[in-house]
């Protein structure tokens, strides 16, 4: 599955993060290559979200390095917006802008940051809205959409920036059960098109289907990195075994 010549897009080496005395992340090492899909799982509070939020510096790390497409990101970096434009992010709670129409939500980034015209941005936005099967809602406001639709809009909004890598922070956790499939379908389509993706999720079916590698985290550390087949059938660490048994055991 993995192209041996693919270049590393996200490289995390020796990253640590503390909140006061509490160690949130410890010695994280992870390299994600172009086109690769990585699913991050683990019990809640294990630092999964914090880790991917460090990649676009929504959270600052204190030690170690993170490189995105060769550029080191750090809290001191002046042009952090430049990195964020290359990294799409989808949040658990969507974070759409409620005072703007769906279309305006999508065109804001491209027109402000990519310097393209309103017309082009509109075409771009409609293209991605069609891809997430929601084009007919373009003129509505976020509150008028269901949770699943809102999350698909959020995915389209991130895609409009033509990011090199997409980060998903528990994209289906805030959704009603019947809404989850639609969002996962969009993510699977995206994966099939070759997007580089780092996905924090509890959807193990999705992980099995899409992931090139599964990263298992617990208590701020990466415990295990394995291909999904191996991870689900034969987890190496005790903690992963426990986690999987709790997750799949009923």
């Amino acid at each position: 599955m993995l192209d041996a010549h693919a270049k590393p897009l996200v490289e995390i080496t020796g990253m640590c993060k503390w909140y006061g005395d509490f160690s949130a992340l410890f010695d994280i090492n992870l390299t994600v290559h172009e086109g690769e899909k990585v699913v991050v799982c683990g019990p809640s509070g294990s630092g999964k979200s914090t880790m991917i939020r460090c990649i676009n510096q929504l959270e600052a790390h204190q030690k170690g390095t993170i490189r995105v497409d060769g550029v080191e990101v750090s809290p001191e970096l002046k042009n952090i917006e430049g990195i964020r434009r290359e990294v799409g992010m989808v949040f658990q709670s969507f974070n759409l802008f409620p005072h703007m129409t769906i279309l305006d939500n999508l065109t804001l980034g491209p027109t402000r940051n990519r310097g393209i015209s309103k017309k082009e941005a509109r075409d771009l936005a409609m293209h991605y809205l069609e891809r997430v099967h929601i084009a007919e809602q373009a003129e509505k406001y976020p509150v008028q959409l269901s949770g699943g639709q809102q999350q698909r809009v959020a995915i389209a909004r991130a895609l409009c920036m033509k990011p090199k890598v997409m980060l998903f922070d528990e994209p289906t956790s805030a959704l009603d059960p019947e809404m989850i499939a639609g969002v996962l379908d969009v993510m699977i389509e995206l994966a099939e098109e070759g997007m580089t993706m780092i996905v924090v999720t509890h959807e193990m079916g999705f992980a099995r289907k899409v992931a090139d590698r599964v990263v298992f985290m617990d208590q701020g550390e990466i415990i295990e990195v394995a291909e999904p087949e191996q991870f689900f059938s034969n987890p190496q660490s005790d903690r992963a075994q426990l986690f999987l048994s709790q997750l799949l055991g009923h």
Partner: peptide, 19 residues
């Protein structure tokens, strides 16, 4: 979340507050 949403699409500080 609104600040993070604005950050995630790479808006600069002025645009983030303005829009």
């Amino acid at each position: 979340g609104q600040y993070e949403g604005a950050d995630a699409i790479g808006l600069n500080v002025v645009d983030k507050y303005r829009f």
